[in-house]
């Protein structure tokens, strides 16, 4: 019978002895514990919210199983509730996921150029904001990168997200009718999540992009509609980012 992994192995502090895929997988599951504890109430809120906009338990479960992105899923509820057209829903939700493009390359940079990525097509599915943060944190603490660890980490978080959604959807929106303060807190989960995500990516260089996106969202929402405001904000912010980069490059060329 294999020896169970030690605390140092599980936390990734003992890179020399954490070698077998089984131990690495267990270490990943262990690292997923705090993420799972955080995911459960948020996923529960999503399940409750999904029933609130008229989705069935199966539909709520399906969204968590297939999309697996908290921000996009909460936004999907808002768009479904507002009756947004399917194409607008898809465009907005896909744009929301673009931030994930940078996670894989950033992780590989931290892991070293020769890091194994044979099964990346599978474990990358679980590369959410928190999983990315936990994996990068392990590398920063001197832990080693392994695909088995990524599978354990991703699976633990994914299971918590999907099971929390089902629990919330089964409980249903009526479950909170006698708890208005709790319902109010859950209702604020979406703005809180977006603000936390915003803080996690905030840097001085991105301030112009954020300012343009925010201003365009407010103006177009007030003058036209919420859906148009979303599209205008994202497009205006992205264009501002491209222009900002071009101007800075030209300034650099002129200075040289």
């Amino acid at each position: 019978m294999p020896k169970p992994p030690s605390e140092r192995e599980l936390t990734g502090q003992d890179a020399a002895t954490t070698t077998t895929p089984g131990r690495e997988f267990l270490a990943g599951l262990y690292a997923a514990l705090p993420i799972a504890l955080g995911y459960l109430p948020i996923a529960f809120a999503f399940g409750v919210g999904a029933r609130g906009v008229g989705l069935s338990v199966v539909e709520a479960f399906g969204l968590s199983l297939i999309i697996y992105s908290g921000g996009a899923q909460f936004l999907a509820l808002a768009l479904i509730g507002a009756g947004a057209p399917l194409l607008v829903q898809i465009f907005t939700l896909v744009a929301m996921g673009l931030r994930h493009l940078l996670y894989g390359p950033a992780l590989l940079r931290g892991a070293g150029g020769d890091a194994a990525r044979r099964h990346a097509w599978a474990w990358a599915w679980g590369l959410t904001d928190e999983v990315f943060g936990a994996a990068l944190g392990r590398l920063a603490r001197g832990g080693r990168f392994s695909e088995a660890f990524m599978f354990g980490l991703g699976l633990g978080a994914y299971a918590a997200w999907v099971s929390g959604t089902v629990a919330g959807a089964v409980a249903g929106s009526e479950a909170l009718q006698g708890w208005p303060s709790f319902a109010a807190g859950l209702g604020f989960m979406l703005p809180a999540l977006f603000l936390a995500l915003l803080l996690s990516i905030l840097s001085r260089a991105q301030l112009p992009v954020l300012a343009v996106a925010g201003a365009a969202t407010v103006v177009v929402t007030l003058l036209w509609s919420g859906t148009a405001g979303l599209l205008a904000g994202m497009i205006a912010g992205a264009v501002a980012g491209v222009l900002q980069g071009t101007l800075l490059a030209r300034k650099g060329d002129n200075a040289a």
């Binding site: 929301m96 673009l98 977006f194 990516i201 929402t221 904000g233």
Partner: peptide, 13 residues
Amino acid sequence: ATGPAAIGTLFVA
């Protein structure tokens, strides 16, 4: 730029 723009937009909205 698209990722930050999307998140900023969603927070404001």
